[in-house]
Write a protein that binds this DNA or RNA. Structure first.
Lengths: 277, 277
DNA sequence: TTGCTCCTCACGTCACGTGAGGTGGC
DNA sequence: TTGCTCCTCACGTCACGTGAGGTGGC
């Protein structure tokens, strides 16, 4: 667990947080050239958080029956997550936090109507799968939250943990929902986000409202991004409402192999909503 | 290659068409219980086309670095493809052929506007990936085809093979595009379909127009379904224009592991079109 | 009948984690 | 100094394909 003066992680620190043994880390490097940590002058390895994230990815793929070689190949190609320390000014919203760490995500300009369709699609999918999702929502105003309330009551009932942001008069936990008050003028006043983090129904939509009323948004079902969004939401809740006992993020990552089904399912729900309205 | 009187495939026939050896087929069955062919009274195995399709799926997953056990698990869970002989009356359109063989596909009622958005999204993705797609399109009328012509010229240039159905005056191959004349009154006069079959940009949309002007449609990026749609398209072309020298379907299946990226990419393109219009 | 298929037993190779054993930097 | 890390060499197990060897149904 010790961090060296130079800021890198020792091999035993990486072993501890990945569950691998020290010899395995060395064997992987020798046999597959992965990971390739920095070296001190004396030859000692120093890993960074990026290495750890990629190792976790390898372990996910191995659990899904992939050979070590194939899993490493996939982890190597997976986009880089920027590990920056949380910064209240830079990560004021889920959207901003995602974009800062995942510059590869495509951003889309979406109308309010489309935002609503995607939000409903994600919520429906979570309700349909009923796999105890960890739910996060950013609503701008209490009125917006109240319009969503019937659905969100149901979500909270079926879910493991629910956090919502809006301009509540004060932060509190009500009927199992952690309501976080957005301070006046905070970036969160412009955020519209829905995050569902569960093994079989993971999806995230996060956007901010521009002056013209349209939204700059990202959405995806990638497990790593969904988890990142959940983490950012937890962090924001802890910042703005430190006294709420918000549960930590789930320990297991959503199922990557199920992503195709989820993406198609969510999309079809979105299309149905847009086509109907 | 020999089919027995009972209609099943012998072990050597299956070996020949999958590329596996006969001992391997027996070893898989003994060690993993897959496949489990029917047995003649004397104990000889008899496989069916479904077994062959699932074996192909296992081989795809193995190529993607999956262990034999994991690959078999996936193939076991993959939905059944109904192997029915092609029937001109029942498979008069790509949509009908897909639904007959894949009853598990979700059907959606979509407006003309949404159909157009999905079609454009699939075409854009094929152009963006530029991985020599095999393209199939059903346009109802020559006017509809002509509206799409600029895009489809470009698709045909970048693609390996292009087939389009419309009420052309006659079937012919023009500038590398196989134009198939739809006979008056054929079910194809109501079909709207776009199929892009390529390793990294596979997707299919297939719908038929109802009396109210809306479409009953399926869309997906699943490799097996895309390939099925291409096959049905080839078969329809051969039926309606036997003299055109239409190339056979590609030999390699689209990349299953890339499905998530494709699904998200196509969806985002669809949303962009819908939001814009 | 010929050639195919049945079965069991066993082997060979490769992937991958683990451990020993002696060394030097942190 | 203590404990950690370095390295190489090697082993053990498991997954998986292949082959032999004798048999009986197609």
């Amino acid at each position: 667990m010790s961090r060296s003066v130079e800021g890198g992680l020792t091999i035993s620190a990486v072993a501890a947080r990945t569950g691998l043994s020290v010899p395995v880390l060395r064997a992987w490097e020798q046999r597959h050239g992965f990971p390739t940590p920095a070296r001190l002058e004396g030859g000692h390895r120093r890993y960074d958080d990026e290495d750890v994230a990629r190792i976790q990815r390898v372990l996910d793929e191995r659990r899904a029956g992939r050979s070590l070689e194939a899993a490493i190949d996939i982890a190597r190609r997976s986009p880089e997550v920027v590990h920056a320390p949380p910064d209240a000014r830079l990560d004021g919203t889920i959207h901003a936090g995602l974009r800062r760490r995942r510059p590869d995500l495509d951003v889309h300009i979406l109308s309010r109507r489309t935002m609503l369709a995607i939000s409903h699609a994600i919520e429906d999918e979570a309700l349909a799968m009923a796999d105890r999702p960890t739910i996060t929502g950013a609503f701008q105003t209490v009125e917006a939250y109240e319009r969503a309330l019937p659905r969100w009551r149901e979500l909270a009932r079926s879910g493991a943990s629910t956090v919502v942001f809006a301009d509540f008069p004060r932060s509190r936990t009500h009927r199992g929902v952690h309501q976080v008050k957005i301070p006046a003028g905070a970036p969160l006043t412009r955020e519209w986000a829905v995050v569902c983090d569960a093994p079989r129904s993971a999806a995230v939509l996060a956007g901010w409202e521009r002056a013209d009323g349209r939204f700059e948004a990202v959405w995806t079902v990638e497990p790593e991004v969904v988890r990142l969004a959940t983490d950012i939401g937890r962090h924001l809740a802890a910042t703005h409402a430190p006294r709420l006992a918000v549960e930590p993020s789930p320990t297991t990552l959503p199922d990557a192999t199920d992503g195709l089904r989820r993406a198609t399912a969510v999309t079809n729900r979105v299309l149905a909503y847009l086509d109907r309205g």
